[in-house]
Design a protein around this nucleic acid. Structure first.
Lengths: 137, 137
DNA sequence: CTGCATCCATCCTGATACTG
DNA sequence: CAGTATCAGGATGGATGCAG
């Protein structure tokens, strides 16, 4: 029977635990990209309501149209977001969280909550680290 | 007074909520990179004990020496990991979680736990999505 | 309004070789 | 053993123009 830590299977060896490769890698990489968490946060504001493309875009002023499209497409592909296309003129497209997408929100909240509590300390640590490094020239 | 969702400040406007840029972006990006979570997971296996560079490397067979060094250096810079250098021959270097690093573990566990429960569904969703797309040629 | 295609600059990563 | 330097490839992201 495999053990697991943080959802990741590993095996015990003479030299210590060895993580075995598995898919969660890829999931984490996707969620950690530049925009995914931001888009999920916007959709989480009103988990029950669908948002238009332009509403999401307005919520994240710095995102480009291209990147919002790509991010939403990936979320749709992962089954976290549903896309509703209305063939009107002009076209209207709405996005909303799927049930699975909504189950992610508590975990996301836990993680971003930790960041909210600690990012100032992290910033300070970075400044101290960088300052210490610049002495050693 | 600013509101916040998932640790991220935002303001209400006539057109809806708008996320305001802030530092947590960068923290998430760091944690979401290719190796950071894996390294944290290894260190989390024995949160009270320091691990040698080579022990960590053995725990993540696919990581290159270069990327492990870079990842550990970034974690040290962020104040999540402490580096202990022993000027022996051959040199020995050990790493361990800082108190702040340990406070991150529950949040990490929540997130990776969700992934453990859902990554199969995500994989399936991706396959369905890709299969549907290839019909439309 | 929404989305795709293209081009291009940048960053990230891995491979390799070398040092204390 | 641990770390650094260098280089090349691919991945990522932004700007722009065009289309349904």
């Amino acid at each position: 029977m495999e053990k697991s830590i943080h959802g990741r299977p590993y095996i015990e060896t003479k030299k210590g635990p060895v993580l075995t490769p598995c898919a969660p890698n890829g999931v984490l990489a996707r969620l950690g990209d530049k925009w995914t968490i931001l888009v999920m946060s916007i959709l989480a504001l009103e988990p029950a309501r669908a948002l238009r493309f332009s509403e999401i875009r307005n919520g994240i002023p710095s995102i480009s149209q291209r990147m919002l499209t790509l991010t939403l497409r990936n979320l749709e592909r992962d089954g976290l977001v549903t896309r509703h296309y209305f063939a009107e003129v002009p076209p209207r497209v709405e996005y909303e969280l799927t049930p699975m997408g909504r189950t992610m929100l508590p975990a996301l909240e836990g993680f971003t909550g930790w960041i909210r509590d600690n990012w100032r300390a992290i910033e300070q640590s970075r400044q101290r680290f960088d300052a210490a490094g610049s002495d050693e020239i």
